[in-house]
Design a protein around this nucleic acid. Structure first.
Lengths: 357, 357
DNA sequence: CTGAAAGCGCTTACAG
DNA sequence: CTGAAAGCGCTTACAG
């Protein structure tokens, strides 16, 4: 089925291709009657302008690429919807590109941007596969792409000298907040699930930022956050999964609960797995142990017990992302911004007073 | 930051643009030495071919559009990863397009296909916004797109005279299977959550196909599946959510549990919400009521109790989708196929013997 | 208000 | 093995 071209449509209407083009693009300098005739014929003949040809000519589009790498999450999907809405409100089109993990490099970004003359890029979630040590390299390559870039909920580059702009929930502050909540309730032996290796703990990954928020809150309160309270991740490549929370706490419980009366989890999915592991071990939540999550996923409200967590304010995150992007687009200056948005405490049923031992 | 074009690169290398093109596209008829020189320069100068220009010329790409509408789900995300893998194995590139709900019409599909000369389209999940009554219209419009189309896990068009190919888990059979499981355990009063209006129940939506599987299994066993056992959806636009399961069962429980000893749920998310609602009402699962889900999401293994469900064999679904598509691409005939893949029973803790009343 | 022409950045027969 | 030329389907000054 051959696609109908502008030339064919023009002939059918008895006008020049340029006139068709004007009519299709709603230019003011077309006879209303001609326009109507062209649009009618376009509809009838099923004419759809070829985007490739269009992009080849058009100078400045107002289209922004949103790039998601690998598997997405509930959170990113909701964030995407918010972003599309806010971008649209700001007068921009958005276009989602999904990049498989094995192609998440700077060249892929260049290719995507070149495809449609995108004027800016938003990374939703992480981008790149290398460990944090290669992040500066990717970041400097990205700088060559030549359009403003904002990392949305990816903080990995925030510490790099080549840093890009980023907008994210304040992982550190949120984790501190739930930790303080436990401390105020009287908990003193609070564990963290799950942690990766020592180097990773000082990285910009969400779990690490949250870990440090927990650790510093403990220290500030004069409490010990020793190795015995670090619950190691059993599935390091899949740090944010229910399976990771489940397996890790299961293994850790082999050594017994000890004095632990609270577990701060890196996210709600992990917390969900932790709840299940504790249940299977006959440990009651919150009577025996209190548990907290992070993210504010739907599931946090529906587990038994429901999970006390820090909800990500997706609306605000999307709003700030668009603001930062538009600012970069308008003032051509190459300064970058790091924005941290405060999460919102959601009080579930998973936190109680420490058990008497 | 101006992008470097093939012409600039050619000049820098002292060759013609056509030679650069050949080198970049790995054609055999280029002097290896020339090729090396060009590739080196391309890398150094950061040359990336303009996709729009490429697509304008190239005749038959081997690229398939995967289209997802609106909010995605864990299931579709996993399925996407499988599809990308299988398509790649079959020698095709895939490209994900995300379409906002308010643009999910045939014109959008035409636009997407025209953009890159995609040779085929896979819809992942539903497509279109109209109720099932408009489905035939959309379907006939889609036929005009002119490339093979496969609906993956969207069965909505299967009954239409203009039907497209589709591959999906066998919703009907799966729901029948869990219903029979309950019946074999001795249950006689089994409810279904959640159902939409009467017209919707005869539609091709997943919840409706599953509902009919349940209903027919009941009838075959000589059991009554009357109105009192239909749990109406409180959030019709959001039929597959935890909130829907929770709210709906909560409202329904107002009339008391009655003789009901089992609840077949339309999906795992709904089942998760149902578990929570039952818990709040002091109803024990499975001692007082048995509950089943559908889909085999991660969460089904982590709730307390875990959920007996029909897992979607994503691997097989993806495999069949690619097979159907490749077949359509190779034999130009316009026949369509409807493929139903059997789900796999996962035995959780949410099913037990009926309580003695 | 409309048309003819140039050109966006590539690829691909066609010559050599 | 390489180059010059044509052309993919549009848009946009430039004339009229």
């Amino acid at each position: 089925m051959a696609r109908v071209t502008i030339k064919e449509l023009a002939e059918a209407c008895g006008v020049a291709a340029s006139t068709v083009s004007r009519a299709m693009n709603d230019r003011s300098d077309v006879n209303p009657e001609t326009r109507a005739r062209v649009l009618e014929a376009a509809k009838r003949m099923g004419y759809v302008p070829n985007e490739s040809a269009r992009n080849l000519k058009i100078e400045n589009t107002k289209t922004i690429a949103v790039i998601i790498q690998g598997e997405t999450s509930e959170l990113l999907i909701k964030l995407l919807a918010e972003l599309e809405q806010k971008l649209s409100d700001a007068g921009y089109d958005s276009y989602l590109s999904h990049v498989p993990d094995d192609k998440a490099d700077a060249a892929t970004v260049e290719r995507i941007v070149s495809e449609r003359k995108y004027v800016a890029v938003i990374f939703l979630g992480r981008y790149g596969n290398s460990g944090s040590k290669d992040a500066p390299l990717l970041s400097s390559q990205l700088a060559r792409v030549g359009v403003p870039i904002v990392f949305c909920t990816t903080a990995d580059f925030s510490g790099s000298p080549f840093s890009q702009s980023s907008v994210s929930v304040d992982d550190y502050a949120g984790a501190s907040e739930v930790t303080r909540l436990l401390i105020e309730r009287g908990h003193t032996h609070i564990a963290y699930a799950c942690v990766g290796d020592e180097i990773g703990r000082e990285s910009g990954h969400a779990w690490a930022l949250r870990y440090r928020g927990y650790r510093d809150a403990m220290e500030t309160a004069g409490l010990l956050a020793g190795e015995a309270l670090m619950i190691p991740a059993m599935n390091p490549p899949d740090m944010y999964s229910m399976a990771c929370g489940y397996e890790s706490v299961r293994a850790w419980l082999g050594e017994g609960l000890g004095d632990t009366t609270g577990i701060v989890c890196s996210c709600d999915a992990v917390a969900t797995g932790v709840l299940r592991a504790l249940h299977e071990a006959g440990v009651r939540v919150p009577q025996d142990v209190s548990v907290t999550g992070f993210d504010g996923l739907d599931i946090a409200s529906y587990t038994v017990p429901s999970i006390t967590t820090i909800a990500q304010p997706l609306d605000k995150i999307a709003q700030s992302t668009v603001r930062v992007l538009v600012a970069a687009l308008q003032h051509e200056h190459r300064t970058t911004e790091q924005v941290w948005i405060n999460g919102t405490l959601f009080q579930g049923e998973s936190v109680g007073a420490p058990r008497k031992s």
